[in-house]
Design a protein around this nucleic acid. Structure first.
Length: 585
RNA sequence: GCGCCCGUAGCUCAGUUGGAUAGAGCAUCAGGCUUCGAACCUGAGGGUCGGGAGUUCGAAUCUCUCCGGGCGCGCCA
């Protein structure tokens, strides 16, 4: 509807070129938008205002000329000049009928588009280190990433979802040694827990599993473990201590033994993370292992590409990448003095592999604290001959948990942070995803547990679901009265939907495809949340103002067609958000 | 210090390809269930869009500057 109007307007403007207008305006100038005020009709355009200056014309005069040049259409009741020179379009009664039919015939695909043209997009999100359970911040990234991917898929992109597993670095060694120390402690060895280890309770089951699997074969006396190690914090350096402890572990249980502890810890943590995400309705097409990537030579490959482009230099014993030549603020080390490749090296290798797998657009959903490395990775991609703008990184701001007015402290190192799993169990998936997506991702989020849990009218989650359930209830009532919905009759009588409330519902309903495109383009799932609330509001208002199950069959069927379409759109939208659409509640 | 994000009603937030009188929820106050589900609806009050300057027919939106807040600036991952 909107696009057709735009075509009409464009045709009208085209007719004026040469006489009233000097030339055809550039693409994107002739646009139609929804009227914000019903007195301004259904759609409005500001073309005349935008073209007035170049045409050296009075905007209202120009607008009148454009209106006069508009090809007449039976579904446009009238177009008129208003205000400073806006052109307002009033649709004919029943003009929305076609769109309503679309909703009911297309069903779950209503609202999808070919905007993306099948472009291959890789959405990488969560990618939390497998060194502990997911916390509430990851939950927000999961909800955002999953819904963004859904939106892009609905907009016609070929989307794949990916989780990058950082299973290669020092953090994994620290996890392994944490497990091992807990294992020793459980066996009765008085080995103090390292300050820099992972102190969370979740390590205890890892140690138990290790005992179940390895018995006491990995046990060594505390004295042998601790002999000659540097002092731990606070007296000493916690980094030096844990590095010493890791080396000692490798010495005592061997590289193979250590690897066994590490692999067991990793596998269990990863299983927990996958299970948690699956329970949250978040699924990935790929789980890419950093370790595997390194083993397959991806890092060496990336370094070779950089080398062949002449972007590497040796300095102070390390190998540097000239990132400043590509907009980064400083050059970066890719291979350390000790021969170890840096995290950055594996990261640009990973991103190169994404490109080499054929994705033209890379979206990295990152926590806000990671914004520093976007410029680096982009610089790396550019240096390897990739376009810098193929990478975008929506930054997800932090989540603060509240219980009513009381803020829940969330120390990273403290053992008692709230996990995503705990949050889901307490408030439920629907409320969780809804609350995560309610706010713009670049806005810090205050997540109130009490509000999310409450079954009260303060809780916005149920408002939308209730509208959906209410329609289901109406249909049950219809059956109970021995009646049936006649779709053909309903769609044939949409011209009867003339009341203020019906027009409002239609106007809201038919915006859905526009909202989906907008939300996808802006990477803004919250726009969909706000829209669904508006649609539910229009529906509830209508519901309270009118009876649907009236004696007059044509009218009844037309009204039912309308509310069924509302239900369909609510269900489509909620599905994209990962929130259920219940028939009753 | 430098970089990124942000500042809109009492509270939590929408609204940024520049458009008409800046919106919603909660809270407050006043109303609506013998009618398809009151987890709903109707109405009212509530604003220097952080301050200032600029760009123009027009600025919450763009530019500059100041104030206030969050995050980041390793041969860590």
């Amino acid at each position: 509807m909107k696009q057709e109007l735009e075509q009409l307007l464009l045709a009208a403007v085209g007719r004026l070129v040469g006489e009233t207008l000097p030339q055809m305006p550039p693409a994107g100038t002739v646009v139609i938008e929804r009227a914000r005020d019903t007195r301004h009709g259904d759609f409005a355009s500001n073309v005349a205002l935008r073209l007035a200056k170049g045409a050296r014309r009075n905007p209202r005069e120009l607008a009148a000329a454009i209106v006069a040049a508009l090809p007449p259409q039976d579904w446009v009741a009238r177009a008129e000049v208003a205000g400073a020179g806006f052109i307002n379009f009033h649709l004919a009664p029943g003009a929305w009928g076609r769109e309503l039919a679309q909703v009911l015939t297309l069903g779950k695909t209503y609202g999808t588009s070919r905007l993306g043209g099948g472009e291959r997009v890789l959405v990488e999100f969560v990618s939390a280190n497998p060194t502990g359970p997911l916390h509430v911040g990851h939950g927000r990234q999961a909800a955002y990433g999953a819904t963004l991917a859904n939106l892009l898929a609905a907009a016609g992109y070929a989307v794949e979802r990916e989780y990058y597993v950082n299973d290669a670095g020092r953090q994994m060694d620290i996890l392994a040694v944490s497990t091992w120390v807990r294992y020793l402690q459980a066996a009765g060895e008085s080995v103090p827990f390292p300050e820099n280890g992972y102190r969370g309770d979740y390590v205890l089951p890892l140690a138990q599993a290790l005992r179940d699997e390895a018995g006491s074969t990995l046990r060594h006396p505390a004295a042998a473990v601790l002999a000659g190690l540097p002092a731990d914090a606070p007296a000493g350096d916690k980094e030096a201590y844990i590095d010493g402890l890791i080396a000692r572990a490798r010495g005592l249980i061997g590289a193979e033994g250590f690897r066994r502890v590490l692999d067991l810890s990793l596998a269990r943590m990863l299983h927990d993370i996958r299970d948690d995400l699956a329970g949250f309705g978040v699924r990935f097409d790929h789980w890419v292992s950093e370790r595997t990537l390194a083993e397959e030579g991806a890092i060496d490959h990336a370094l070779q590409v950089l080398e062949s482009q002449g972007r590497l230099r040796r300095q102070d014993g390390a190998l540097w990448f000239a990132a400043t030549e590509f907009g980064d603020e400083k050059d970066r080390v890719v291979v350390r003095e000790n021969g170890q490749k840096t995290y950055f090296a594996s990261d640009i290798a990973y991103h190169l592999s994404k490109r080499e797998r054929g994705f033209s657009r890379l979206i990295d959903v990152l926590g806000a604290d990671h914004h520093g490395y976007v410029a680096r990775v982009r610089a790396g991609l550019m240096a390897m001959g990739q376009p810098g703008d193929c990478l975008e990184a929506p930054l997800i701001q932090f989540v603060s948990l509240f219980r009513g007015a009381e803020k829940i402290p969330m120390g990273k190192r403290e053992a008692q942070f709230v996990t995503l799993r705990q949050l889901r169990e307490e408030v439920g998936n629907d409320a969780c995803r809804f609350f995560y997506l309610m706010r713009s991702h670049d806005q810090p989020l205050d997540f109130d547990l009490e509000l999310a849990k409450s079954r009260s009218n303060e809780n916005p989650v149920y408002y939308i679901q209730y509208a959906h359930a209410r329609v289901a209830s109406v249909m049950k009532q219809l059956g109970a009265r021995g009646l049936a919905f006649d779709r053909a009759a309903g769609l044939g009588n949409t011209a009867l939907l003339t009341s203020e409330h019906e027009q409002a519902v239609l106007a809201s309903l038919t915006r859905y495809p526009e909202i989906l495109e907008q939300a996808a383009v802006a990477r803004a799932p919250h726009a969909l949340v706000h829209y669904l609330r508006e649609l539910a509001n229009a529906f509830h208002t209508y519901y309270n103002a009118a009876q649907f199950l009236v004696e007059d069959a044509p009218l009844r069927n037309a009204r039912l067609a309308l509310v069924l379409a509302v239900q369909q759109v609510l269900r489509n939208g909620l599905t994209l958000l990962g929130v259920s659409a219940p028939e009753s509640m």
